[in-house]
Structure formats: structure tokens, C-alpha cells
Amino acid sequence: MASSLTSTAAPAGAAGLGALLLADGRLPVGGLVYSAGLEPGLADGMTQADVPRYLRARLRTVGLVDAAASVLAHRAATSDAGFGLDDVQEALAARTPSAPLRDVQGVLGRGLARLGERLRPDHPATVALRALGRAPLRPVALGCVAAALGVDAEATARASLYDDAQAVASAALKLEPGDPADAAAWVLAAEPDVAALVRAAVAVPHPDDLPATTAPQAEGWSLTHQHRTRRIFVA
């Protein structure tokens, strides 16, 4: 008999813990390798005082795109949505013009896919992710793993946005050490943005409608950061 860790259906109550699990920036590799663009931003002259504004600007641009893509992947993996994971992957890649950022999204996506294989290998969402046949970008993997854990679309979008904000806040403590309470306050202050962006992400009906609110400055930073020999994070 399969254990509860490898069964197709999520145990009762698992969805709540699943959402918290996915919002933990350390899992599976996220916050350990990814600063959400903060490291190259600081190298280009940003200061710690700029971090709260940067965090919220990311949420309204890259964060929204990623959250909406995770919702679309969730739908594609769990229902007859009229589009597939390939469509979501292609739409998201088209809105991520920086090759280094696509690469790091693939690293994070592979880590999440591995998590899905370990926890819910037989779930249809995990099977669909496996069938993609290439490294899924992080939001695509997040949507599928969330579905496999029984997390609904709204909670998936919130986890995606929280993870982005927390990635910035936690990276700031490594790059420009300060009071951890301040970093927590930055994330909490972003709650109105997150609430509005969750609604916007859930309302996106199709990959063709995925927002294209990219951040050109961050894209440029990623291109220079890949060549730095002294860095803590890959991006």
C-alpha cells in the first residue's frame, strides 16, 4: 500500500501545510541561490534604504507575471483549461528576455519538480509536469506542485508573491546586514500589494493574456551579474 507521501490524493488538511511549504523560500533551493535580483541591484548602487521600494516594485512587475503563470499552470495541470503547460512555459519564457534569468528559473523549477516527484509522484499534476520534457520554469513547476499538494489557485498565487518578497528580504540580510525585524516589516508592508496582485493573477484567463510587466533594469542587471566572479547568489 502506498504511503500518504506518495498517494495521488492529498491527505485532508495537507493543502494548508502545502501552501506554507511552498512559501518557504529555502525549499527546495530558492533562497539559498536566488536574491530576486537584489545582489546585482546593490552592486549597481542601490542602498539598503531602497530595498523596500525594490521589493514592492518587483511584486508589481515580475511578481505579477510569475504569480499569474503559476495559476495558469495550476489550471492546465488540473482541468480542461483549453491550454497546456507548454503554452504557459512558452508565454512565460517570452516575457523573460534575459537568458540568465530563464536559466535560474529553470534551476528553481527543477528543484520544485523534484519535490513533486518525491511527495506526489502519481498525481496528475506531477505527471503533467514530468511530461513537459524539459526544465520547467519556476512558476510552471510551482503551479503543478501546488495542485499536487491540494493548494488552490488563489493560495498558489499568494505563495508565489510571498516567496518573491521574502527572497528579497532574506537576501538583503545576507548582502547588507541589518535588523531582521526590519526585513519582516518590509514584507508585511507589502500585503496590500500582494492582496491586489493575487486577485489580478487569478483573473488571467489564458497564457496569451499573461501580463508582460517586466523590469528592464533588473533584466540588464542579470546580464552583467552572470559575469561577476565575486557574488553570493546566481541572480
Score class of each variant (00 low, 15 high):
Gly143Arg: 10
Ala147Ser: 09
Ala77Trp: 05
Thr126Trp: 03
Ala171Asp: 07
Asp87Gln: 14
Gly106Val: 03
Arg231Gln: 06
Met46Cys: 13
Ala12Asn: 09
Pro216Thr: 12
Ser35Trp: 14
Ala215Gly: 08
Pro180Phe: 09
Gln105Lys: 14
Ala67Arg: 13
Ala183Val: 08
Leu101Val: 12
Arg58Cys: 15
Arg75Thr: 03
Arg56Gln: 13
Asp209Phe: 10
Ala153Gly: 10
Ala77Leu: 03
Gly106Arg: 06
Asp182Thr: 13
Arg53Gly: 15
Gly30Leu: 04
Gly37Phe: 04
Gly106Gln: 03
Ala181Ser: 04
Arg228Pro: 07
Val202Phe: 01
Ala165Val: 07
Tyr34Val: 05
Leu132Lys: 02
Pro28Asp: 13
Pro180Trp: 09
Gly143Asp: 09
Ala113Arg: 03
Val187Gln: 08
Glu39Val: 00
Leu85Trp: 00
Ser7Cys: 05
Gly41Lys: 06
Glu90Ser: 00
Gln217Ile: 04
Gly13His: 05
Gly133Cys: 05
Leu64Phe: 09
Ala159Gly: 03
Trp186Leu: 01
Ala23Gln: 08
Met1Leu: 12
Ala190Glu: 13
Pro180Ile: 05
Arg228Leu: 11
Ser170Pro: 03
Leu210Lys: 07
Ala14Arg: 12
Ala76Thr: 02
Ala165Asn: 11
Leu21Val: 10
Trp221Ala: 10
Ala169Arg: 01
Leu112Arg: 11
Arg231Ala: 06
Ser79Tyr: 02
Ser222Met: 05
Ser160Val: 04
Ala36Cys: 15
Leu223Thr: 10
Pro11Asp: 03
Val187Pro: 02
Val62Ala: 12
Tyr34Ala: 12
Ala113Asn: 05
Val107Gly: 01
Ser79Asp: 13
Ala212Ser: 14
His225Val: 08
Ala68Phe: 08
Leu21Gly: 10
Leu38Ser: 08
His206Ser: 06
Ala49Met: 03
Ala76Ile: 02
Leu101Trp: 09
Gln48Arg: 15
Leu175Pro: 00
Pro11Gln: 07
Trp186Gln: 05
Met1Trp: 15
Leu188Cys: 04
Pro97Phe: 14
Arg134Cys: 00
Ala215His: 13
Ala215Pro: 03
Ala77Arg: 04
Leu55Gly: 12
